[in-house]
Amino acid sequence: MQPEDLVRDHTIYSCVMGSRAFGLATDASDTDRRGVFLAPTELFWRFEKPPTHVEGPGEERFSWELERFCELALRGNPNILECLHSPLVGHADGRGRELLSLRGAFLSRQVYDTFTRYALGQRKKLDADVRTTGAPRWKHAMHLLRLLTSARDLLRTGELHIGVGDQREPLLAVKRGEVPWARVEAWMARLAAETEEALPGTPLPPEPDHARVADFLFRVRRDSARQADTHHEVVQGVVGGRRLGQD
């Protein structure tokens, strides 16, 4: 089975991410599609395992195999968690809807570390741009401000909302380079401080609910294996019946 076939035939959840999901889209914005596919259990019984992720088919599309997706979400990966909270869901079958119902199980105080590390990495890239060219990549600066805002509000409320709401115009002004870098730096510093201040009183639990997620993954893997067994039994029965009739 080709990787593209896994995405085409076994996707359980897909959504639109990027600027369109954040409420920051303009006429020039791409449509970034993300998804989760469930590789049939029988594929894991071979030496060559299914891929953990697949690019495509088509441009601006990326998908993860369910187990890998859950692993990253349990670690508090910002991109993965945001994918689960996109307001633009393209497809969700029964298993995809159950995955969405588990969104809270992936959230914990660990997001402070993961979001902060990601933000720090992006900030270092912006600082490097300023040193070499005299200005940051303004689009990246805008998205870093958005991420810091989401992290702060997540720690304050225990819920992740990725839409920027009434911050759309101020953020787009940053993207257009209309806000001095010094003001953007001060904005980032304020958000980082507010995020740190929110940590001690956050309603988020210390750890994600590993057991609940593991139970979900076990059940979908088991059901996939049972469906494969049923399919093989039906095929064998049909073949056996034809042979019997021929005899």
Rank of each mutant, 00 (worst) to 15 (best):
Q2H: 07
D5W: 06
D5A: 15
L6H: 04
V7I: 13
V7Y: 10
D9M: 06
D9Q: 14
T11R: 07
I12L: 15
I12K: 03
Y13H: 07
Y13M: 03
S14H: 05
S14I: 06
M17A: 14
G18H: 01
S19W: 02
S19L: 05
A21P: 02
A25W: 08
A28S: 14
A28W: 11
D30W: 04
T31S: 05
D32Q: 10
R34W: 11
P40N: 01
T41A: 15
E42T: 08
R46K: 06
F47K: 05
E48L: 04
T52H: 12
H53Y: 13
E55G: 06
E55K: 13
P57M: 01
G58A: 01
F62R: 02
F62H: 04
E65K: 11
L66W: 01
R68D: 02
E71G: 06
E71S: 08
N77P: 00
N77F: 02
N77W: 03
N77C: 02
N79S: 14
I80P: 04
C83K: 05
L84R: 09
L84N: 12
H85L: 07
H85K: 08
S86I: 08
L88V: 05
V89G: 02
H91F: 15
H91L: 14
G94R: 14
R95A: 10
R97V: 09
R97N: 11
L99N: 03
L100I: 10
S101W: 03
R103A: 01
R103T: 00
L107V: 04
Y112N: 08
D113Y: 07
D113E: 11
Y118M: 07
A119Y: 05
A119N: 13
G121A: 00
Q122N: 14
R123T: 10
R123E: 14
K124A: 15
K124V: 10
K125H: 09
L126Y: 13
R131K: 14
T132P: 00
T132R: 15
T133F: 12
G134Y: 08
A135P: 04
W138T: 12
H140E: 14
A141R: 01
T149W: 13
S150W: 11
R152S: 06
R152E: 15
R152Y: 12
T157G: 02
E159C: 08
L160N: 01
I162Y: 09
E169C: 07
A173G: 10
K175N: 12
R176Q: 15
G177P: 08
G177H: 06
V179M: 13
P180Y: 02
V184S: 07
V184H: 09
E185Y: 03
A186C: 06
A189C: 08
A189G: 10
A189Q: 15
A189I: 06
R190P: 05
L191Y: 12
A192I: 06
L199C: 07
G201F: 11
G201Q: 12
T202D: 10
T202K: 11
P206M: 03
E207V: 07
D209H: 11
D209K: 08
H210D: 13
A211E: 08
R212V: 03
F216N: 00
F216C: 01
F218L: 13
R219W: 02
V220D: 04
D223H: 09
D223I: 03
R226W: 11
R226M: 12
R226F: 12
A228M: 09
H231A: 15
H232P: 00
E233M: 13
V234P: 00
V234F: 09
V234S: 09
V235K: 12
V235A: 13
Q236F: 08
V239P: 01
V239D: 06
V239F: 07
G241Q: 10
R243N: 03
